[in-house]
Design a binder for these strands. Sequence first.
DNA 1: ATCGGCAAGGCAAAGGTTTTCGCAATGCGA
DNA 2: TCGCATTGCGAAAACCTTTGCCTTGCCGAT
Lengths: 342, 342
Amino acid sequence: MVTGQGPVTITDVARLAGVSPGTASKALNGRGSISARTALRVQQAADQLGYQPNALARGLLTGRSFTVGLITTDSFGRFSIPVVQGVEDALGPGRILVFLCESRDDRLREQHYLQALLERRVDGIIVTGRRQDRREPIGRDLRVPVVYAMAYSSDPADLSLVPDDEGGGTLAVRHLLSTGRTTIGHVTGPSRFRAAVLRAAGAEKALAAAGLGLAGGRALYGEWTEEWGRRGVDQLLRSAPGLDAVFCGNDQIARGVADRLREAGRNVPGDVALVGFDNWDVIATACRPPLTTVDMNLRRLGRAAGERLLAGVDGHPGSGLQLLPCSLVVRDSSQPREPQAG
Amino acid sequence: MVTGQGPVTITDVARLAGVSPGTASKALNGRGSISARTALRVQQAADQLGYQPNALARGLLTGRSFTVGLITTDSFGRFSIPVVQGVEDALGPGRILVFLCESRDDRLREQHYLQALLERRVDGIIVTGRRQDRREPIGRDLRVPVVYAMAYSSDPADLSLVPDDEGGGTLAVRHLLSTGRTTIGHVTGPSRFRAAVLRAAGAEKALAAAGLGLAGGRALYGEWTEEWGRRGVDQLLRSAPGLDAVFCGNDQIARGVADRLREAGRNVPGDVALVGFDNWDVIATACRPPLTTVDMNLRRLGRAAGERLLAGVDGHPGSGLQLLPCSLVVRDSSQPREPQAG
DNA sequence: ATCGGCAAGGCAAAGGTTTTCGCAATGCGA
DNA sequence: TCGCATTGCGAAAACCTTTGCCTTGCCGAT
């Protein structure tokens, strides 16, 4: 395979095949008019030498590097991961490679990364973050397309893809209503998170459509933790004793709610049904009972971001804030009440 | 800043500064002998035009691309993430960029990625995976240095960095012994995982040094889940009623154990102390009580991998399987028994 | 017999940067 | 004043690939 020193170049291949480098290039790339016999000879020579085209030289000439940058503010927590996977789905294994840049919420780091990406002539950039956060555009007049995913740009001329948190809230509550629940509370994260507010709004919208309101009169904002879930449901039980369902702002809260309800002697889902948000499997499936929850389809969102970026590379950039639908994953915690035994 | 069409080249900068491209290059890179006045003029011209050197052209010539590839079999689960962060730490923000490749345990995908990385002339490759798994070398005679992290190569000529799982097990049990516990059980994951076996071995070693053995006579192998933790501790309580501590193979198991013990009316840590493994904060801190656990220092491992890779790039490759120490994170679940209230 | 057209493949430029070499100018000591 | 070392800078090659254009040779048609 690999012979002596230095990687083998197309000139080596051409020499072995007895043609010129230009011809070898055309043969390998299927361009120009090359006889089948010659093409085969070149191909065999390339295989024999283990030829690997130099992507740097190719990129220098063609102006495309077949790489994209991915800048994330999330410390690659659980939100970025599926997004990254989706991006990879869209870009194909090895066709276009992804530069990973973790800015750690440091504007300076981010600029360093941006600079490095542009120097490497990436074909495009994806910006992502934790939760749904509004953020400054990463730069201006970048010469390369940029797509924002999860986090969204404050400039409406940029293309941003975010999950439809409000729709997700609606989905959750509609589902609870469909199982016959009517006294539905909402325990969620801090109100400074746009996602929390949107989910609550979606929930209230669904309730209003049924002529109902939130149990306890309002959404309970707190933290994204189990501990808050436990405290929150206590509060809820005091203000709405007839509580028969809780929609939670994320799965951790839901898990805390489930634990506390069990400790308080309430059966889930017999007495109280539960729906979470995020479909974080390690939480949702370990919950007792396994948790019905809203999935933001982040991987699909990542894939969409990758596809839109490719469209941008091909000269069809998009713009505006685009919502991608959530979906509901039904598990035991929201089963309809058993018909009364007996 | 960015003027008309096409990125500005060093020739543009040179023209504006009134020097030749070669001189401009030297001025910007601090090579050769250039007068301070000229260097300043060139620098100003570069700033004025917003010059960004073309890394492709530079790499083509110098043979170094200042990029590395990171291939992971883990679906960027929680193990790869800190490793990736550590790698980024070692490579500096923007100095060397990381190509992210997720092979998804598919040998074919992996080969595609490898091919793509080599074509892009990466300076080196890091291979990582979930847990501590032995694996085939990614390729032979690759021309670029390779470092394995977490997963380790079956070829001892390769350099592999793995956490010292056995040492971690020893650490955990020594700590429990130091708080006065003597009847210590071990509930862990499947025995086909090398990590599980090593951790158990480390635990038994520490016990043997104190003239003790595992409560129940042997380690209980099962799954990496909370559910198994609950069942496992039941088993343990039956075979060792005097149980006063449990060392768990991971934090999820530990959490299941904690929940079950509470339900069984045993106080943690009053009656039974608990130590987990992984220091997965979302589990460990949400546990009731917060969980003492072993941290594999994966980020440090990632940083070490990055540093060793750079050493390899500089012509100082390493080899062999190298263990990196774990450390103990003490929280409430292993507090020494309160002195009996008088 | 001449020419047009086509297929196959070679030539050379281009892409942007770094680096070697050489040249000119300057400064210094003799 | 001359010779020499040193400094500052320019010219050009090199890195590897792609591609537009050109040449060559062949075939069929006129």
